[in-house]
Amino acid sequence: MADPVLKIDGLEVLFPGFSGDVHAVNGVDLDVQRGEIVGLVGESGSAKSVTAMTALGLLPPGAFRQSAGTISILGRDVATMSEREMNKLRGGDVAMIFQEPQTALNPTKTIGKQMLRVIELHSDLRGMAARDRAIELLKDMRINDAEEILGRYPFELSGGMRQRILIGMAFACSPKLLVADEPTTALDVTVQRQVLQLLHAKARQTGASVLFISHDLAVISQFCDRIYVMYAGRVVESGPAQKVLGNPQHPYTAALIEALPEDADPGAPLASIPGTVPNLVNPPKGCAFQARCRHAHAACDSRPVLTDVGSKHQAACWLREEISA
């Protein structure tokens, strides 16, 4: 079998702070195989972004410490790669899209200038050939008057248009892995649907793998083949999207789905989860969800590990271990 596009083993990341270190990532294992669309879902602060940013070497040096774990991209251990090699990887075999399309584009340069720079940096195309490639990428993203758009500045375009341009640019160098962190969170639902459809189609058509980060369970369920549910810097459940969301095995995943108003009876209160996420300066020793879990019991004082609960489906909960034991 070919090397996974991305493989993370036992990752721990902390941010040193005045009132103690923030233990943001607490032992995460995760992989993305070739052509796979993998989702990372969880609430704010669960470390979706820090996990992805660490993997791509994008956290500001000095601000954080990777205290354990290994990361390999396309079979290469990133710890052995120089900054130059990492830079070449990013924007080449690995591309990224973030939530705010506004800040990802340079406001003082036209779209055309920025697209040509990316294309020329990472391919042999020059001049008219590079320009044709830019137009082709924009057309793929359903941007009608592509020639005209090349002459425009980012502020002259809508958020949805900017995000489609960034996706087009991300595919400029035929990446093998695309990391998309909340790429549609700032967009209206109609625009979100369009952007998701185009991104999905383009990934499938080029065979690129996608690591897709979102807090939106519905978006994740429609977009991803396989997902990881994160809580307080840990993976609590993983497996095929339809299985995990259709038949959740971890109490946290189940409680999140129940808390959605989508199918709720307007006459009854919503099934909310009491309390809030744990403080990561002193992360819980046992199960991170213990303080909010209605099934918590004595065993939960020690930390549960991911256990098989079905084919390719895993959950980290003592209830499951006891059932399978």
Binding site: S158, T190, R193, Q194, L198, A201, A218, Q222, L260
Partner: peptide, 25 residues
């Protein structure tokens, strides 16, 4: 109708459908 059709849902089967052509206000 367009707005309601665009909402992502956990119950959807059959993926994301066709891309909308015009989303600009």
């Amino acid at each position: 109708r367009l707005l309601l059709d665009s909402i992502p849902t956990m119950r959807a089967t059959g993926g994301l459908g066709e891309a909308l052509s015009n989303t600009d206000l």
